[in-house]
Amino acid sequence: MEHTKATSVGDRIYDAVIYTILSVVMLGTLYPLLYIVSASISDPLAIARGELWLWPKDITFGAYERVLQNPDILTGYRNSIIYLVVGTSINLVMTTMGAYALSRKDFRGRYVLTLLFTFTMLFNGGLIPTYLVYKNMLGLYNNLWVMVIPAAVSIWNLIIMRTYFQTSIPYELQEAAFMDGCSNVRTLVTIILPLSKPILAVMAMYYGVAHWNSYFTALIYLNDSWRQPLQMVIRSLLIQEDMGAMAGGSGESIVEQLLLVESMRYAIIVVSSLPMLLVYPLVQKHFVKGVMIGAVKG
């Protein structure tokens, strides 16, 4: 009984320490988010005076009105959504097909292909040769496809999905499907994919966030401003100091415009982050399950 009691006390102390650490991490993560949201709807003068700590002061939505009135923001939003939907769809199709092929035990040469794929994670042709190949040989320049085709497959994600197929889906199910006359495509569509919702949710989240945050490809390969994704529009506004024109309005002094610019910076951060914050709860259940697969499989 004494040993059980001592163990119970030790467990309670351990749980208390863990919960304390997690609470501190949670607060450290949530506070910047709450501060940005509060600052985006607070009076710019209160922000400049340092009066804002957590809750908004003198709530106003003027910064959001100016941001949403900018046609470049709306165009960037549209482009980013297109790149995200088209790119993620291609990513999931290509990654699923490649992972299924590499997971098959009867596929000869799968180890050699896996080695070749892994080699591309360590070495690449460099920026200038890649630029010349994309532009002169493949025609991937200043168009939609340059944003989605070169990043069609992430080798890291391909390996993760292949491992899921090998460890989480019994191979006997595939053999039974073949004995019933199913082809490889039908086996993948009717047997493998319905059992792979967790890993598909993880891959969709990984690829979707990557597409939404992508800016370097657009910086190199897109010339037309109306093709630029939201991240490039934000870059031009924040780095190139183009927000003065957005903040300018009739009857506003220079000081008021500068104060409004600060609020608009926070509003732009909220506007650009909102889609991912809204999508994540929809796939959270499958996402958590898919992330934990490697931990429980060992």
Rank of each mutant, 00 (worst) to 15 (best):
E262L: 05
M243K: 05
E262I: 10
F216K: 11
R265A: 04
G249T: 03
D180I: 04
L238Y: 01
A204M: 15
G244K: 05
L193R: 11
F178D: 04
L258V: 13
I239K: 03
M205G: 04
R235G: 11
A210N: 14
V209D: 07
V209Y: 10
I234P: 02
A210D: 13
T217A: 12
Y207V: 06
Y266R: 09
N213Y: 00
Y207R: 12
L258W: 06
T187C: 09
V255E: 15
E172D: 09
S263A: 09
G248H: 01
H211K: 08
F178W: 07
L195G: 06
S253M: 04
R186P: 07
E175F: 00
S225C: 01
S273H: 01
W212G: 05
I254Q: 15
V185T: 11
M205R: 02
Q240M: 06
L219I: 03
Q240C: 01
V209G: 04
L188G: 13
I268H: 02
S263W: 08
M179N: 01
V185D: 05
S183D: 10
V270R: 02
E252Q: 14
V202T: 13
D180R: 03
N184F: 07
A176R: 00
Y171R: 01
Y207G: 03
M232C: 09
L195N: 15
S196Y: 07
I239S: 07
G181T: 02
V261P: 04
S214Y: 11
M203E: 11
L260D: 05
D224W: 08
Q240V: 06
A201Q: 02
V185G: 09
V270M: 03
G208H: 05
V185A: 13
M264I: 15
L274T: 08
M203N: 10
M203H: 04
V255R: 09
E262C: 03
L173T: 07
T217L: 14
R227F: 02
Q174I: 01
L237F: 08
L193C: 13
V271H: 00
G249N: 07
A204P: 14
M232R: 09
P198D: 03
V202R: 12
S236H: 01
S263P: 01
L277A: 11
V270F: 03
L195D: 08
A176P: 00
I220H: 10
A218H: 12
S225G: 03
D180W: 01
Q174M: 00
V202Y: 11
Q174P: 00
R235H: 08
I220W: 10
L230N: 08
K197W: 15
F216W: 13
R265S: 05
S236A: 02
R227T: 07
Y221H: 14
Q257P: 09
E241S: 11
E262M: 06
G244D: 04
D242G: 03
L278E: 02
S263H: 06
A245N: 13
T217P: 06
V270P: 01
S250Q: 14
S272E: 05
N223S: 12
I239M: 10
L237V: 05
L260T: 08
V202E: 10
C182V: 02
I254W: 13
L222H: 00
Q257A: 14
F178N: 03
S250D: 13
L260M: 12
P198V: 07
Q228G: 07
E252T: 13
K197V: 12
T167E: 13
G208K: 03
M246D: 06
E252L: 14
L200V: 12
V261G: 03
A210W: 10
L188A: 14
S263M: 08
Y207W: 02
S214T: 12
F216T: 12
